Simulated scan of single mutants.
Amino acid sequence: MKTLVIYATKTGASFQCANILAQELPHCTLCDIEAEKVDFTDYDCLILGAGVRDGKIYKPIRDILKKNKEILLQKKTGYFICNEKQKKTEEIIADNFTDDLQKSAVCIQSFGGYKAYAAPKEGMDQLKGLNVEAIKVFAQKFK
C-alpha cells in the first residue's frame, strides 16, 4: 500500500512528526505541501498534518481539506495536529475537520507541540514537546 504523508509547518513540529511517520511506514512518501505538488490519486493512503495556531490548523492543510475533500473521503486517511494545548485537542479537531472527514478517517490525533516562540533552535532536541510514542502507535494503524 502506497502512503503519502503531507505536512505544512511553520515551526518545524509537523515536519518532525511527518518524518517519524515516514520512517515507520513502508512505501511512504513525504511531502511538504508548500514546496511541492503531488497527485493524491497515486496513493492508497493519505496522512495530513499541520500545526495549530489560535485554534486553526495551518492554512495550506486547511486548503487541501477543502479542495480535495472528495478524494480524501475515498482514501484511507489519517490526520494529525501539533498543538501545545492538549486540553483543546477535541475542540480543535471539531472546529477544523468536517464531520464526514472525521468519520471516514482511520484516526485523528494530536502529537503535542510547542509554542511558536519556544520552538527548539538548531542543535536543540527537535522532538521536545512531541509524543514520539503516539506517532509510532498512529503509524501502526496504517501498516
Rank of each mutant, 00 (worst) to 15 (best):
F142G: 05
K75N: 07
A116L: 12
G112M: 03
V5P: 01
F80N: 04
A50R: 02
D42V: 02
E91R: 14
I47N: 03
A105R: 03
C107N: 10
K37Y: 08
Q74C: 08
F97N: 09
K121G: 11
I47Y: 05
A105L: 07
A134E: 06
K2Y: 05
K115P: 00
T29N: 14
Y7E: 03
F80L: 10
I61C: 07
C82I: 07
N131H: 12
Q102C: 11
L101N: 06
G12R: 09
A119N: 06
C45H: 12
K103H: 08
P120R: 10
E34G: 13
C17H: 01
A8I: 01
D99T: 15
C107Q: 13
V5D: 10
K37V: 10
E133I: 02
E34A: 13
K59C: 02
T89N: 14
I93R: 00
Q126R: 14
E84P: 00
E70D: 14
I33C: 13
T3F: 05
S104M: 05
L101A: 04
N83R: 01
T3S: 08
K66T: 14
F142C: 09
L72R: 07
L127A: 13
A35N: 15
A139G: 08
T89C: 04
F15G: 04
I93D: 02
K115F: 06
F40E: 05
T77G: 04
A50T: 01
C28S: 14
C31L: 13
E24Q: 15
Y117N: 13
I81N: 02
F111M: 09
F138A: 07
D44P: 04
C31W: 12
K37D: 13
T89D: 15
C28Y: 07
L30T: 05
K115A: 15
L21C: 10
E122S: 13
K121W: 11
P60F: 06
E122V: 13
F111E: 01
Y79G: 05
A94T: 10
V132Q: 11
C107K: 11
V5M: 01
A116K: 09
V38Q: 14
L72Q: 02
R62M: 11
K2D: 14
V106T: 15
L48E: 00
T9C: 06
I108S: 02
M1R: 10
